[in-house]
Design a protein around this nucleic acid. Structure first.
Length: 591
RNA sequence: GCGCCCGUAGCUCAGUUGGAUAGAGUGUUGGCCUCCGAAGCCAAAGGUCAGAGGUUCGAAUCCUCUCGGGCGCACCA
């Protein structure tokens, strides 16, 4: 159906131009930005495809919409794919497509197989997609999981739509949070050595910190140990009621007492352990990246300095109180932002400026930054500097926000706090619910929609999860094929394809219609950066199949009808597989 | 206080970018296995699209306000 639809749309567009040139229409609609649109009808009494262009331009042309529709229909060239055209209601133009058109889709799907659904819509445009990018200061939690599932699925959708996609995880391996992690590891390590120095409130509380400390001790012995009284003495002048200054003082003390080399080793141990853990976790979740991009490498390679120079050339920077500021308010941000702190250290924002510019310099023409919704306040300042540097003038920068998955344990909301270490990890969720259900569940909701994730329901009644419904349809198809072989029968595909016209039941027509919509569904997802259309579509397709299965026997005695039905069933299987594959969900033969 | 996201069936969510009678799942009620897998199918019931204005041929969708929920507002990342 899809190639026909675009072809018909082209013809409609040409017809409108023709009507303007020949003076029938007083206005060039296309020049006014009014373009025809073809949509699938919800009700078959209105045909297969419908166009509302006459209604849209009625005011502009100062004509009755039905009259306009008539002019358009009269001007259309002969359309071999169309059975009937009707003008209905206030002025809709309804197209009834030829019946054999929809049956052709079966042959197309069977010949394309795993390629069916893919298109060249993206024209191999180079897209950079960054997602997850969680700080390596602890294991991924269920909030990160949603971003991971969304980003990976979106990347798949973009690839299938003909974009050249490069995916990246930005590793925040520099900055204060990593120092706090290092300090946290060291405190646990020192405890392990037998010291009784109190663990700071705002250090990372999770048990994984203890594991890292233990491993560090096993590897290095008590080399990093410091006596409690020595630490107390060193920190005696620090205000212990202010958590932030206290932990910063502790970090400064560690850097001094351990020396550069050993501090780096401590720092690196925490980083490596957690990053590997995250990498492993995501790989098991079916989420992999083309590149893990190190924040620290930007500073090491002088890219921060370079991009700040570029930014300074724009004139939108200034110095105040010893710090370098970016005048982001000139571009709609709430307040100006610090680039270089008064202590000479670049901020996270400065790194990100360099990172985003680096993406452009690597030749990407479309940048997608998947953010957690709690970072939405960060987007205006990113847009601000891109605007200042003349990037994103063509709307090449996107920042889809993924809302939180709010966890519920029965009626109780699960509180999430990274610092306190009280949160459900992605790994726990995967182990209890399963990868398939987890991935499916995450992307079946619109990414900007808040999502309720009821753990007790997901765990105790996982059979109710819609992913099983779809997988069951696939397993049933496999089972039918198994039965076919057991009965000693053979599926003659050629014969079936030659007689797809036998598939004339309403249910069969609905199925073919649905199969034909798959490619444009993927493009729609790529256009809007939306993943939830695929799960909804697959559920609907599975539902149509289950209805079909219950109402008709596939393995009938009439060879030709059987061959034709099995062709349809095979086509359904292909689309189920292709669709599930986009979601990173398996299509099991049996369950 | 300011900004962003959201409010659709008892619950969880779709709604083809402003179109024709607002749809699914789940839950409730009642049916369907001598038959390719009952993790399935069929049917019934369930709505002032949070509320009030406005824009127009036409609004769940767009603009304003009100109410309610979530999240942000660092020289943290």
């Amino acid at each position: 159906m899809w190639p026909m639809k675009t072809a018909l749309l082209d013809i409609l567009t040409q017809t409108l131009t023709g009507l303007y040139r020949s003076g029938v229409f007083s206005t060039d609609l296309l020049a006014k930005g009014i373009t025809p649109q073809l949509t699938h009808t919800r009700d078959k009494q209105f045909g297969d495809l419908t166009c509302n262009i006459a209604l849209l331009c009625a005011k502009l042309l100062q004509q009755n919409p039905r009259e306009i529709a008539e002019r358009i229909v009269e001007a259309l060239p002969p359309l071999p794919m169309v059975k009937k055209i009707e003008i209905a209601g206030p002025g809709f133009i309804n197209f009834y497509m030829r019946d054999d058109l929809s049956t052709q889709i079966i042959g197309q799907i069977l010949s394309q197989g795993g390629e069916y659904g893919k298109s060249s819509y993206g024209s191999l445009e180079r897209v950079h997609i960054e997602y997850v990018s969680a700080n390596p200061t602890g294991p991924l939690h269920v909030g990160h999981g949603r971003g991971a599932a969304y980003g990976a699925t979106l990347a798949n959708i973009l690839k299938a739509s003909g974009f050249s996609v490069h995916s990246e995880y930005y590793v925040n391996d520099a900055g204060r949070q990593m120092d706090i992690l290092a300090a946290s590891v060291w405190c646990r390590y020192n405890e392990y050595c037998g010291e009784s120095f109190p663990f700071p409130d705002n250090a990372y509380q999770g048990d994984y910190v203890k594991d890292i400390a233990k491993a560090l001790f096993a590897k290095t012995g008590s080399h990093f140990q410091r006596k409690t009284e020595d630490i107390m003495a060193a920190l005696s002048s620090v205000d212990k009621t202010n958590k932030d200054t206290y932990i910063d003082a502790l970090i400064a003390y560690l850097k001094t007492t351990l020396g550069d080399e050993h501090y780096r080793e401590l720092h690196q141990t925490g980083l490596n352990t957690l990053q590997n853990d995250i990498k492993d976790d995501l790989a098991q979740f079916g989420v992999t990246f083309d590149k893990w991009f190190s924040e620290r490498s930007l500073a090491d390679e002088g890219k921060i300095e370079k991009s700040l120079q570029d930014l300074q050339k724009t004139g939108y920077t200034y110095e105040q109180a010893g710090a370098l500021w970016f005048k982001s308010t000139a571009f709609g941000d709430d307040k100006d932002r610090v680039l270089i702190r008064d202590n000479g250290q670049p901020t996270y924002f400065a790194s990100d400026v360099a990172y985003q510019l680096d993406k452009y310099q690597r030749g990407f023409t479309k940048l997608i930054n998947v953010f957690g919704a709690d970072h939405h306040g960060y987007v205006p300042r990113l847009r601000a500097f891109l605007t200042a540097l003349g990037k994103d003038t063509d709307g090449s920068f996107f920042a889809p926000l993924v809302q939180f998955a709010i966890l519920w344990r029965g009626d109780e909301k699960v509180s999430m706090s990274t610092r306190s270490g009280e949160y459900v990890t992605l790994r726990e969720l995967r182990n209890e619910v399963g990868n398939d259900a987890t991935r499916f569940f995450y992307v079946m909701r619109k990414h900007e929609q808040h999502m309720d994730f009821d753990l007790t329901l997901a765990k105790s009644e996982s059979n109710d999860n819609p992913v099983y419904y779809i997988q069951y349809a696939h397993a049933r198809i496999c089972s039918v094929k198994h039965q076919l072989a057991e009965k000693g029968l053979h599926h003659n595909v050629e014969n079936g394809l030659a007689h797809v016209n036998l598939l004339s039941l309403q249910n069969e027509k609905d199925l073919m219609d649905s199969l034909g919509r798959f490619p444009e569904l993927i493009i729609l997802g790529a256009k809007n950066f939306e993943t939830h259309g695929i799960p909804h579509y697959l559920r609907e397709l599975a539902s149509l199949f289950h209805t079909y299965y219950n109402s008709q026997q596939f393995l009938v005695d009439e060879t030709t009808l059987r061959d034709a039905r099995l062709c349809l069933v095979n086509a359904i299987q292909v689309v189920l597989q292709n669709g599930l594959s986009l979601l990173g969900v398996s299509a099991p033969d049996s369950m």
